[in-house]
Design a protein around this nucleic acid. Sequence first.
RNA 1: GCGCCUUUAGCUCAGUUGGAUAGAGCAACGGCCUUCUAAGCCGUGUGUCAGAGGUUCGAAUCCUCUAAGGCGCGCCA
Length: 556
Amino acid sequence: MNVVEQVQTKLKEEIKAAVLKAGLAEEAQIPDVVLELPKEKAHGDYATNMAMQLARIAKKPPRKIAEELVEQFDKGKASIEKIEIAGPGFINFYMNNRYLTDLIPTILQAGERYGESAIGNGQKVQVEFVSANPTGDLHLGHARGAAVGDSLCKVLAKAGYDVSREYYINDAGNQINNLALSVEARYFQALGVEKEMPADGYHGADIIGIGKRLVEEHGDKFVEIDEKERFETFRDYGLKYEMEKLKQDLESFRVGFDVWYSETSLYENGKIDEALAVLKEKGHIYDEDGATWFRSTPFGDDKDRVLIKQDGSYTYLLPDIAYHKDKLERGFEKLINIWGADHHGYIPRMRAAIQALGYDEDTLEVEIIQLVHLYKNGEKMKMSKRTGKAVTMRDLIDEVGLDATRYFFAMRSSDTHMDFDLDLAVSQSNDNPVYYAQYAHARICSILRQAEEAGLTVSDRADLSLVGAEKEVDLLKKLGEFPQAVAEAAEKRVPHRVPNYIFELASTFHSFYNAEKVLDLEEKERTAARLSLIKSVQITLQNALDLIGVSAPEKM
RNA sequence: GCGCCUUUAGCUCAGUUGGAUAGAGCAACGGCCUUCUAAGCCGUGUGUCAGAGGUUCGAAUCCUCUAAGGCGCGCCA
């Protein structure tokens, strides 16, 4: 717990104590003490709405309650300088902010660990994201999912959750057959032979590339061989090629996974049969019309779902149930799936399956990533998977830049539809907020370099009583918010809070920078104190940027 | 038809657990570089929080209904 949290805790205790002393409510009746950070500086450093909350219990007007509370307050105890009653009954606390300087040595010592908290309590969480089919290039939606998923994982880890990142490889089923047939068609075409693409084929440029590469590596040797052998060869080759490409693309997007889980493995190790057997045993399975059904409606689904089709093959759902059963058996207490908006209709049946297996439905959380629309020349770009005319994640990184792309996706709440204006992102890249934040970091690094050249070093033993100017206090307050901002982003699964925080911190720093000079050889003590302050800002900015996979450059 | 998401300034979006006068960026206008990076700072203007009811001390926020847009509703994945 850092000083800020200590002071807040103390303040809350004092508020509660004052309620009891004033005899306004019984201990059990007291609502949770709410401390707000007022938007207006004139409203003090902290405010509480306790008087309003007690209005009904104490049966008195809020302002009267507030007066009685303030009378009981022990000011000396919680760094309180002044208390005022305002508005409908807010109690505003003006703090003696001297204690905030303790943050500086805390941050300097914590270094890259600053921002950590224990709010996650070591809970074992698994986050499954991207999981794009290995049948084409990653497109915009995947990029958004990758950015959000990666940031969420980092935020969760920093907030004290035990996180495992996983990618589910759909390497079984129809789409892989279509991949093999698509590769086959492209192979023949690369040889100059007319060959039609399959009806549900994949028209991406990557598959054309596979066809060409097969010809380069093997010539026409697959033309004459047995059709089944060719199919299997092309399927395996295509899958391997696609997976390698996926991994490379994600790596270059700074997104990594702990586990790559193969759907095929579920077929091979009997986990599908096992899952089916468990459901059957619990009475959630029946046969009808020659198919095998999962009775999901008792668990809130719209209709029951087919697991095994008339032709004996499995629907997508069955291996997916087996997969989630396996996740749960691996001991995860929380499963977070990040899915594209086009899969949201799938949520009720998956949650039904979780319950049917005997787990709490809330064990599974699904975060939906809404669609991304790309605009160019002021017009919405048409994307078609069918013709392969879609902008890929790689195109986007190449055009917009890695940091800007990551920041752009991370900064928006994932449940809103997103317009990505390519012209703006590319041509006016200086206006991109990512540069604003990185610039603050680079500026600090520049000052630190010059300090070093002048023989000054950052030390946590500087005389911090010299830190107290308005802009300095603003910075300290903002620095102190970081661990709570991360914790909240983690608990609420809203990683886009992090870019919000980054922007605020950068803004506070830029403002400070223009108001106060750090390096002043006439005033070595003050300079030392300010160096330790800006070093703290640098550390915090770097840590925050790292949470969203954006670099913190030392020069720009 | 049913389900989920969205609707906040000209544009793109924040808005914390229901709090005080709803905020940023972009765009517009006016200032600030002989002084640590002007990719910056300071200032000015900007609202039917889609609409209507309800809950209450208090609603952009919670509930109900309506409208608009998106996505889904398969023995596809």
